[in-house]
Deep mutational scan, measured.
Amino acid sequence: TTFVALYDYESRTETDLSFKKGERLQIVNNTEGDWWLAHSLSTGQTGYIPSNYVAPS
């Protein structure tokens, strides 16, 4: 499932994924509650993102 970032997010830990508003993200795993494992289609990096910062594209 592809989502789009609603806001900028700066990672707080090394497992988080930083992203910019408008960036497209492929969700890898969304069974972890409020933090989803995502892959950035812009940077190619993978990490955890706050689910309330993204919406379906």
Rank of each mutant, 00 (worst) to 15 (best):
28 V>T: 04
16 D>I: 11
57 S>T: 11
16 D>F: 04
31 T>A: 13
28 V>M: 09
48 Y>H: 14
41 L>C: 10
20 K>H: 07
10 E>N: 12
6 L>T: 08
18 S>E: 06
57 S>A: 05
9 Y>E: 01
12 R>S: 14
17 L>S: 04
16 D>W: 04
39 H>M: 14
44 G>E: 15
16 D>C: 12
32 E>P: 08
23 E>W: 00
5 A>F: 00
4 V>I: 09
41 L>K: 08
56 P>D: 03
50 P>V: 01
54 V>A: 03
39 H>D: 06
45 Q>K: 02
43 T>A: 04
46 T>S: 10
2 T>K: 06
42 S>Q: 06
3 F>C: 05
8 D>S: 06
43 T>W: 00
26 Q>P: 01
54 V>E: 00
11 S>W: 00
14 E>D: 14
30 N>Y: 13
28 V>E: 14
27 I>N: 02
42 S>M: 15
39 H>Y: 10
38 A>G: 06
54 V>M: 05
20 K>M: 06
5 A>E: 00
37 L>G: 02
28 V>A: 13
17 L>T: 04
18 S>N: 07
2 T>A: 01
21 K>N: 05
13 T>W: 11
12 R>T: 14
1 T>A: 14
35 W>A: 07
6 L>A: 08
37 L>K: 13
5 A>K: 00
20 K>E: 09
45 Q>W: 05
12 R>P: 04
26 Q>Y: 10
23 E>C: 04
53 Y>A: 09
18 S>M: 01
16 D>L: 04
32 E>H: 09
7 Y>W: 08
43 T>G: 04
28 V>F: 08
12 R>C: 05
15 T>P: 04
3 F>H: 06
40 S>I: 03
26 Q>N: 10
1 T>I: 15
4 V>H: 03
3 F>G: 04
22 G>N: 02
23 E>R: 00
2 T>S: 07
45 Q>L: 11
39 H>N: 09
24 R>Y: 13
14 E>G: 08
3 F>S: 03
10 E>T: 10
36 W>M: 07
12 R>M: 11
17 L>Y: 04
52 N>K: 14
46 T>M: 11
57 S>L: 08
47 G>K: 00
13 T>E: 15
40 S>H: 10
36 W>S: 04
20 K>G: 03
22 G>H: 05
15 T>F: 06
23 E>F: 00
53 Y>K: 13
37 L>I: 15
18 S>V: 02
10 E>Q: 13
30 N>A: 07
4 V>K: 03
49 I>D: 00
56 P>L: 07
4 V>C: 05
17 L>K: 01
20 K>F: 13
57 S>Y: 03
52 N>G: 12
34 D>G: 06
53 Y>C: 15
44 G>Y: 04
51 S>H: 07
21 K>T: 07
29 N>F: 05
31 T>E: 11
32 E>L: 07
57 S>P: 03
39 H>S: 13
10 E>M: 11
48 Y>V: 07
44 G>N: 05
21 K>I: 04
16 D>P: 02
53 Y>N: 15
28 V>Q: 15
44 G>F: 14
34 D>R: 11
39 H>C: 12
27 I>P: 15
21 K>C: 08
18 S>C: 05
42 S>R: 12
7 Y>L: 14
15 T>H: 11
7 Y>A: 13
27 I>G: 05
20 K>V: 09
13 T>P: 01
43 T>E: 04
34 D>Y: 14
26 Q>H: 02
24 R>D: 08
35 W>L: 13
10 E>D: 03
56 P>V: 11
41 L>Y: 10
41 L>I: 06
45 Q>S: 06
8 D>K: 07
47 G>R: 01
27 I>K: 06
41 L>D: 06
15 T>Q: 13
42 S>V: 11
26 Q>L: 07
48 Y>A: 12
31 T>W: 09
13 T>Y: 11
7 Y>Q: 15
50 P>C: 06
31 T>L: 10
30 N>S: 08
49 I>L: 10
46 T>E: 12
37 L>M: 11
11 S>H: 14
19 F>C: 14
21 K>S: 09
35 W>P: 15
13 T>D: 06
30 N>L: 12
7 Y>G: 09
18 S>K: 08
15 T>Y: 04
27 I>L: 07
23 E>L: 00
24 R>L: 12
42 S>N: 14
4 V>M: 12
49 I>R: 00
52 N>L: 11
29 N>E: 06
